[in-house]
Amino acid sequence: MVNSVVDLILPKPRSRWASVKRLKKLWLSLAGIAVIGVLVAGVMLWPTTPPDLSVGHRMLSSGVVSSWRDGDLIVLIRHEERCDRSSNPCLGPADGLTVAGTVIATAVGKAFQTLGMSNSDVLSSPATRTAQTSLFMFGKTELSPGPLAICGNAMADELLAHKANGRNLLLVTHSACISDLEKELGYPRAAHAEYGSALFVKVDANGKLKALGVMNTKDWPAALKQL
């Protein structure tokens, strides 16, 4: 009987260097996953829009009410419903408000009256819809100086130039201008401002601006009940 002889080739033992390389690759992969996870979490947790002032008791807890009484606020208010982008009946010119927009503007003005307007100044951008909003909301129209709205990258400085010490400044303006200020205050991805919504911004003792929150028109009644 002939015995078959099978030649076995034993694998070479892996070198220590190869093991180190494998561990290094694994470590780099895990580190990459961890970095991506941190970035994703940061994006998810980073605030995209100033706080909603109608939630809870934020009108009080955010400092809006106390800052309002001290005259330390700048409030940007978007004009109400514009006629040329609505099927609702117009008040007058196509570049102005709808009739429904004037009704809502009047209601929002009453909400501001509840806060008190004795230490507040009102300006509006030089557009028909903003001037009309100011008229129905606050009973007057005073246009900001110059032919253009207060907007752009240097908006904060321009607003401060129009604000008197100890007096709130209310500016009836446009959604694009509100977005400009929100970007300047650290909210580059803020939600588009609704018709009649108000962005409340505090001016501290050093002239620095901080966004306290946003109030939308429909939320005023519930928010005022918390005061």
Rank of each mutant, 00 (worst) to 15 (best):
G152F: 01
D72H: 14
E81W: 00
A164I: 09
A105S: 14
D121H: 11
H79C: 01
P145W: 04
L53G: 02
A211L: 10
K210I: 08
A211K: 11
G207E: 07
T98P: 08
K202L: 12
N165H: 08
G56C: 05
S54Y: 01
L60A: 12
V75E: 07
N216V: 06
A161S: 15
S15R: 10
S67W: 02
M117S: 05
D204H: 08
I178W: 01
N119W: 03
N88K: 13
R69N: 14
G37H: 09
H174A: 06
G152V: 06
V172C: 08
K24H: 11
G116H: 06
I9W: 08
G92M: 00
A211S: 15
K12L: 13
V214I: 15
D157Q: 14
V38P: 05
T128I: 04
I36D: 06
L123Y: 14
P89R: 02
P13F: 07
R189I: 09
N168M: 05
S118A: 15
L28R: 11
K218L: 09
V6D: 11
L143K: 14
G32L: 07
L212Y: 06
P93G: 03
T102S: 15
S62C: 04
D180N: 12
C90L: 05
K225V: 01
D52Y: 00
G109W: 05
T130G: 01
S120I: 07
L76G: 04
H174S: 09
A111E: 10
G166E: 12
L181T: 08
S86Y: 08
M117P: 06
L45D: 08
L53D: 04
V214M: 10
P126A: 04
P89E: 04
T114M: 06
A156C: 01
H57C: 01
D84S: 10
D204S: 08
D180P: 03
A176P: 01
L224E: 11
L73C: 09
E81T: 01
M44A: 14
P51E: 07
N168V: 02
L23H: 11
R85M: 00
H192T: 12
Q132N: 05
E184M: 06
W68V: 07
L73S: 08
K183R: 14
P51S: 06
V55K: 13
S120F: 05
G92F: 00
G101S: 02
W220E: 05
W46H: 14
D121F: 02
T49E: 08
P126Y: 02
S87P: 00
S15C: 02
A127K: 11
Q226P: 00
A223R: 05
L97S: 06
M215F: 03
K183W: 03
T114R: 13
A41D: 11
K225G: 02
A107T: 03
R69T: 13
G101L: 05
V55F: 02
S29K: 12
G213S: 09
R14D: 12
N88L: 15
L199E: 12
L60W: 00
F136R: 07
D84N: 14
A211T: 10
G213V: 06
T114F: 10
W46S: 15
R167E: 07
W46I: 03
T114W: 05
P89H: 01
N119P: 01
T102Q: 10
L115V: 04
L23W: 14
N119G: 07
L45Q: 13
P145V: 03
